[in-house]
Design a protein around this nucleic acid. Structure first.
Length: 326
DNA sequence: TCCGTGACGCGAT
DNA sequence: GATCGCGCCACGG
């Protein structure tokens, strides 16, 4: 039995249990942890639990290693604060669930050999990406997640809402964990985030596919961890994307950062382009306000020559913003 | 390893 | 709108 729990402060707790053939055997909404605890106690001792919430506060001053690793992989997520008191309500509910699970004989997995009956921390969004090898893109979330679970979990029913799907995704991640097809991110001392083994094509999907997790994934000894990207760096991807901007179109620094897998790295895109200006038509990367870059100094002329309309020295983003790599 | 530095972006004023 | 403050993040010394 594999049990996923989705945590929300306002919408309650969703629990989904699947059997070893990944069929849904229970789908429960619990108002609060008091309502959930008897259900947890009724589960078999060998059941594996997966909870969509941090297992505890961060130990150090900054974010946890797991959050740092995933952010570097372009999968940003909630950051557990340094103390429980400063955590948002849904996180405190999550902490309480781990404690309830521990009381029920399901301790938190903290590295080492996986064994039945433990609780693991999961992040459904990461699991969806790992399972499908794609990012959501413009697809509505409900549709994307339902498609990701189709064929992988049966018996969900068409009426399952987003919270139920996320609980099912957590349960599926627990199934992968028990089957040995999983990766872990982070430091066992402060919490490991478990995800299904990413599909093999992820590393090959590079470069510049905005809907791909375009980073190499590799598993090693326990706890299985992602190792540093070995092939293409962020800077390489930025250059590849910038080089692909068609004549007559522009992209913003933020666009390029997003397509390169790091939505918050717009500033770094500027740094990278400045250093490699000779490699790419970097005059086609402009600020979100439409301002052309300072170099080359004739960027505005070049853009005009390519048919990009400029007004008051700024390009009309609405007219010529590139929609991204195919 | 650590720290300062930007061709950024966003929300507040 | 314009400007400012602050968070962001890859790089290089």
């Amino acid at each position: 039995m594999f049990v996923g729990i989705d945590v929300s402060a306002s919408r309650g707790l969703d629990l989904c249990a699947i059997d070893d053939r990944r069929r849904v055997s229970a789908l429960v909404k619990a108002r609060d942890i008091e309502a959930l605890e008897p259900i947890l106690r009724a589960m078999p001792p060998e059941a594996t639990f997966a909870v969509d919430a941090p297992s505890g506060p961060s130990r150090g001053p900054g974010e946890r290693a797991a959050e740092r690793e995933l952010r570097r992989l372009g999968v940003p997520l909630y950051a557990a604060p340094a103390s429980e008191a400063s955590a948002p309500a849904w996180m405190r509910h999550g902490f309480a669930i781990y404690r309830a699970l521990d009381r029920a004989g399901h301790p938190l997995f903290a590295g080492g050999e996986p064994r039945p009956g433990v609780a693991i921390e999961v992040y459904p969004h990461l699991s969806y990406v790992a399972l499908t090898g794609t990012r959501r893109g413009a697809v509505p979330k409900l549709e994307w997640t339902r498609a990701a679970l189709r064929g992988r979990v049966t018996g969900l029913g068409a009426s399952a809402d987003q919270d139920a799907l996320d609980a099912a995704c957590a349960a599926l991640t627990a199934w992968h964990f028990a089957a040995g097809r999983w990766v872990g991110y982070g430091d066992p001392d402060e919490g490991v985030i478990v995800a299904p083994q990413p599909v093999r094509d992820l590393a090959r999907a590079e470069p510049a596919m905005p809907n791909q997790l375009a980073l190499p994934i590799e598993t090693t000894a326990l706890p299985r961890r992602v190792v540093a990207p070995a092939r293409r760096t962020f800077a390489d991807r930025v250059v590849g994307i910038a080089a692909g901007i068609p004549s007559g179109r522009v992209a913003t620094y933020g666009d390029v950062a997003r397509w390169a897998g790091k939505p918050a790295a717009a500033r770094a895109v500027g740094t990278i382009l400045a250093a490699r200006a000779w490699q790419v038509p970097c005059h086609r990367v402009v600020s979100v306000r439409g301002a052309p870059p300072p170099f080359p100094t004739d960027a505005a002329e070049r853009l005009r020559g390519e048919g990009v309309p400029l007004r008051d020295g700024r390009v009309d983003l609405g007219a010529c913003r590139w929609s991204g790599p195919p």
